[in-house]
Every structure is written in structure tokens, then in C-alpha cells.
Design a protein around this nucleic acid. Structure first.
Length: 354
DNA sequence: GCAATTTGACCAGT
DNA sequence: ACTGGTCAAATTGC
């Protein structure tokens, strides 16, 4: 990751991780102080916090960050987008504006790339589903959309489903190669409907096993089960990066290329890794150019992720970006990275109508 | 004033 | 008829 990762991105990511780790440590201290009620739950909580801290440590080590205990270390700017929490666990305000002062212009692009256009109560779901589309849909015909659904089982988890690819110039600058569908389309429903039914499907055998193995290093198994179609299920358990993390679900059938997957598999939907400067989170273990550069409209994707966020907001999806090749996972400005529930999960499934 | 969000209505698929 | 997805007017925030 870091080999091809910009120094700025790396620092940003490290800062984010440091903040998370620091907050986890503070929570650990809080839990330890409550010795009067050493209940089972508390003990379990301490263990979980320890695991979370361990995950941060692993993530930092993966970034070759060998800094000593950060208990006294203040995160250094530039801060990444996920540090835009208004307050930290300690209550110290983290100025959103101050962070933005040092942000790369492309970050602004990514942060503004999603516009909410609807919200719907979903049958059987406790929380409404939010519908977002690319801000540049009208002007540039970018058909990328995403849905954000809060998990019933774990309200701290948001399932994010991405549909379509960013074809806008902004996304191209930050994420994608030159758009393949530069023509401007009317912002009508028909323009986007076909994508919703032209999924590309890969078999579990086509999954980037090597990538999974690599990613599993230092990863935690999560058990949340996303809403996936039966044929997309696989026996591979989901897992995610050390928090803050990305969870790859077993039905992640996207192709990581070039380093994550075999050339044969990568041909399927022509994914490459790339980075978006502000986040760096899409640089899965140093892989770059993770881009969804579908050359034809028949190749589409559904990428859903569950991004854990603070349990404060009941229905609002997160809005702080974690750029992914196919879109952004965003976290609410109210979300504090200090919340230990920060685990993002990531699910990618594709179908092909052909 | 402009852009983003909210929210009820509308539409298509089942 | 029901549901999910989208539209678009109204509202909100900067």
C-alpha cells in the first residue's frame, strides 16, 4: 500500500489510525477504572477494546508506522477525512474546517460526489434506506448511485450498496480513468435502470483468493450478513481490515487487479485499484488502481458495505468519505472516529444479465 | 441566491 | 396490491 501511496495519504491514514487507537485506549482506561462492577459484560468489553487496539496497531504496522505509544502523541496534519469528527471521545473538538484547510482539492470533489435524492422505508428493516447519486449526474451523465441502509442487527453498521460507475470527470481525476461514457444523459430514471439489472456475476471460485488471504492477515471475522442473493453467497466468511477497516464479505466477487487477482478474473469487469488522495482507504494493502473502469454498460456492480458509525444518528447515513473505486463510503460529520464501533465492511457483488 | 436535503408522490416490477 | 427506486417540490443551510 504505502509503496505507491502518497506520503500525504499515508500520513493521513496514520493520523486517523492513531486517533482511533488513542480513543480505544481511553475507553480501555475507562473500562478498567470501573473495577467495582467487574461484570462479565465489562470484561468482555475490555477484551473487545483490546482487540480493537490491536487492530489499530496492526494497521499502523502495515503502514510501517513504528511510532511509539501514541498516548501522548497528537495526530499531525494533514488529517484524513475520517478525522472530521466534531468531537473526540475526550470531548476535544476536531475542527472540520481546519481539516479541510489542508485537504487536497480532490477530496472536496469526493466529499461532494454524492447527493441524496431519496429515502425509503424498507419492508422488514428498522431503518430507512437512503438513496444517493453522483452530484455530477446531470452535468456529466455520471450514473453512479449508492444506497445506504442501516443494519437492523447492529445499528452502528451501515450497509452501503454502490451501483454503477463514476464516469464523471471529477471521479476520473480522483479515481477513474477517462470516462468511457462521456455523453451527457438526461437525468431520467431510464438512464440508470439498465445498470440495475445488468449485473456481472462471478463464481466464488473466481474470487480473488490471494487477495482474501492477504487481506485476512490481521483481519477480524465479522458475522453480519448482508442482504445478498442466494447465488451470490459463498462459504468464505467475511472479514475486514483492522479498524478502521474495510470488510470484505464472502460474496465479494469484485476483482482486485493487478495484484489482488489473476488476470483472468480481472478481465471480467476490469477493476483496477487506484487511490483517492484524501482517503487512502481504498489502497487495500498497497494496491493501487482499484478502479471500476467498466468498458461497457453491461458490466456493473453492486458494492455494498457496512460502515459502522456512531450510534448517535438514527437514520442519517455517514457522510465522511472513504473513497472506494466505485464510490465513497462516507461517514457522518457527527460520527467520531473515536467511536469504537468503527468497522467498515465492504461487500461487492455483481451479476451479469447475460 | 444557490445547492443540498427532505419527503410525499409517482412509477415500474412482481 | 405491494415494494423498491426515483422524481420533484418544498424546505433547509450556507
Amino acid at each position: 500500500m504505502d509503496r505507491n501511496m502518497g506520503e500525504w495519504e499515508k500520513n493521513s491514514l496514520i493520523n486517523v489510525l492513531l486517533q482511533g487507537r488513542e480513543s480505544a485506549k481511553q475507553l480501555q482506561i475507562q473500562l478498567n477504572l470501573r473495577t467495582s462492577s467487574s461484570s462479565h459484560d465489562q470484561t468482555r468489553g475490555i477484551m473487545l477494546v483490546q482487540k480493537i487496539i490491536s487492530s489499530y496497531e496492526k494497521a499502523l504496522s502495515m503502514l510501517n508506522f513504528c511510532g511509539s505509544s501514541s498516548s501522548t502523541q497528537e495526530p499531525q496534519p494533514p488529517a484524513g477525512p475520517v478525522t472530521e469528527s466534531p468531537t473526540s471521545l475526550t470531548g476535544s473538538p476536531l475542527s472540520e474546517d481546519s481539516d479541510r484547510d489542508v485537504k487536497d482539492p480532490q477530496e472536496d470533489v469526493s466529499k461532494k460526489s454524492w447527493r441524496k435524492y431519496g429515502q425509503k422505508d424498507i419492508l422488514g428493516a428498522k431503518y430507512p434506506r437512503g438513496y444517493y447519486r453522483c452530484t455530477y449526474r446531470n452535468g456529466q451523465g455520471c450514473l453512479a448511485t449508492k444506497q445506504v441502509q442501516r443494519s437492523d442487527e447492529d445499528p452502528t453498521i451501515f450497509e452501503i450498496t454502490y451501483r454503477g460507475n463514476h464516469t464523471c470527470a471529477q471521479a476520473s481525476n480522483a479515481i477513474l480513468p477517462p470516462p468511457t461514457q462521456p455523453e451527457t444523459k438526461e437525468p431520467d430514471t431510464a438512464a440508470i435502470e439498465p445498470q440495475q439489472h445488468n449485473y456481472y456475476q462471478t463464481t466464488p471460485q473466481q474470487q480473488p483468493e490471494d487477495a482474501l488471504l492477504n487481506l485476512r492477515k490481521g483481519l477480524k471475522i465479522v458475522t453480519e450478513d448482508l442482504d445478498v442473493k442466494p447465488q451470490q453467497q459463498s462459504s468464505i466468511p467475511p472479514f475486514h481490515f483492522p479498524s478502521p477497516s474495510v470488510v470484505i464479505h464472502p460474496n465479494f466477487t469484485g476483482n482486485f487487479s493487478p495484484s489482488f487477482v489473476s488476470p483472468q478474473a480481472s478481465e471480467a469487469n476490469n477493476y483496477t485499484f487506484s487511490t483517492s488522495p484524501p482517503s487512502g482507504m481504498n489502497n487495500f494493502q498497497g494496491n493501487q488502481n482499484f478502479q471500476s473502469s467498466s468498458q461497457d454498460s453491461e458490466v456493473n456492480e453492486i458494492i455494498s458495505g457496512a460502515a459502522a458509525a456512531a450510534a448517535t444518528s438514527a437514520t442519517n447515513p455517514p457522510t465522511v468519505d472513504l473513497d472506494f473505486p466505485f464510490g465513497n463510503i462516507e461517514f457522518d460529520p457527527n460520527f467520531t472516529f473515536d467511536n469504537l464501533g468503527f468497522f467498515s465492511s465492504f461487500h461487492h457483488s455483481e451479476k451479469n444479465s447475460k
